[in-house]
Design a binder for these strands. Structure first.
Length: 373
RNA sequence: GUGGGUAUAGCUCAGCUGGUUAGAGCGCCAGAUUGUGGCUCUGGAGGCCAAGAGUUCGAAUCUCUUUACUCACC
């Protein structure tokens, strides 16, 4: 493994076994557990790097498929790479485009070689292979790059789930073979749908390829949360101790707590920015649908316990006005707040782990209105 | 004053020659959103169809009167 990456566990909670750790990358250190905001198109929608810093984001995500389609990975490479292009000098993780195979399913065809896409932008045909996904991610230059995987729907048969798992493993080998840069680390992805035997097999075989991080994909695709928690419990004894474990695409407040409790170290989610743009905010008192009439004359901040720019300056009544008038600042401020809220939640979790009281924290959290965010 | 037009949901309007619980868009009220194809999606409330009288088995729709608004001309 490249010397430019390192992960060390700083503390293991005596109550729960959850960890606080430190992941070193060429663009700085990340303290885990960590929540990673998503910036699909080389921007965390509506927020500047300065604002992300204000929210104390330590790493953000971007996306291979979307940047390949527009503006093109070669252009980003010409710009000096993704960090330079988007003026973000902290760590970046790029998703491989595997999830777009899944979410844009009606626009593609999957074979062992790869996936033939029809662009959602202009309908043009493109072939995505593990090699192509690596080539693009090397052009983009993120610190953490993801293996090209095949995600399956909730409800997929065991047979199909196994086929996708095998294909994901075969693709993983090709990703590893193609990878050339030593300033990037490749995270392989565990699949296996909702089947415990497949999940464990996938995990055991995937760990062999993991250098400084492993990801669990294909969860939170419509299944009840209890199923996801059970699968995480099943996988937990088989997770590697010496590297961060990344649960992909999961990040509602309750899932963050339940995931970190089960030994997960990294999570990302579009939820905070997506619901923000549609006028909803997380808070200590549960979810706030800001446009609701209840806040018409509520001149208090979204969350009394939040220290973000939005909560320091604006009232619910004002934010409601902005959202209802479809003013850009509304979605922006709610995005800033929601991301700040989730990052602050991970900080509280870290503190609880360090104090060996994360179990107590979980119990309190589950009984608080925050759990219903 | 004379002649014409309009009056249907909070707003802007559809409702053809009369036929069961009168519609749309916007607004309002509420819900959804989990590796972002999202100014998105899903629900809900809200109308004595200007008022009165008539014709008819049956009227938002036809006739008459009144009222309000509006346009043109004196």
């Amino acid at each position: 493994m490249s010397k430019r990456f390192d992960y060390k566990v700083i503390h293991i909670c005596k109550q729960t076994g959850a960890r606080v750790g430190e992941l070193t990358t060429p663009h700085g250190k990340i303290i885990t557990p960590v929540f990673m905001p998503v910036g699909t198109q080389a921007t965390v929608k509506s927020l500047s790097p300065e604002e992300l810093n204000d929210a104390r984001a330590s790493i953000i995500l971007s996306n291979t498929y979307h940047l390949y389609m527009r503006p093109g990975h070669k252009l980003v490479e010409k710009a000096g790479g993704l960090h330079e292009f988007m003026a973000w000098d902290k760590p970046i993780l790029t998703d491989s485009g595997g999830f777009q195979v899944f979410s844009l399913a009606d626009l593609n065809k999957i074979t062992d070689d790869g996936v033939t896409f029809r662009s959602h932008l202009d309908g043009s045909k493109h072939l995505f292979t593990p090699e192509k996904a690596m080539e693009i991610q090397e052009s983009l230059g993120a610190d953490i790059i993801m293996a090209f995987d095949q995600c399956t729907k909730y409800g997929t048969s065991h047979k199909d789930a196994r086929a996708a798992m095998e294909r994901t493993l075969a693709w993983l080998e090709r990703c590893v073979d193609y990878k050339s840069r030593d300033d990037q680390i490749l995270f392989p992805i565990v699949q296996g749908n909702m089947y415990k035997d497949l999940r464990i097999e996938s995990l055991k075989r995937t760990v062999e390829f993991a250098e400084c991080g492993i990801a669990i994909g294909g969860l939170s695709v419509g299944e009840p949360k209890e199923i996801m928690y059970e699968l995480l419990d099943e996988m937990r004894p088989h997770l590697p101790e010496n590297m961060p474990r990344y649960l992909m695409g999961v990040g509602s407040p309750d899932c963050l707590v339940e995931g970190f409790l089960r030994g997960i170290d990294m999570m990302d989610c579009v939820l905070p920015t997506r619901i923000a743009r549609n006028g909803t905010a997380f808070s200590s008192n549960g979810r706030i649908v800001v446009r609701n009439a209840a806040y018409k004359e509520d001149f208090s901040p979204l969350d009394e316990n939040c220290d973000c720019y939005c909560c320091r300056n604006y009232s619910k009544a004002y934010l409601r006005h902005l959202i209802n008038a479809d003013e850009i600042l509304g979605g922006r401020m709610l995005s800033l707040h929601n991301i700040s809220y989730l990052i602050r939640l991970t900080e509280r979790i870290r503190e609880a782990i360090l104090a060996d009281r994360f179990g107590d924290f979980c119990e309190e959290f589950r009984n608080s209105p925050e759990y219903k965010n």
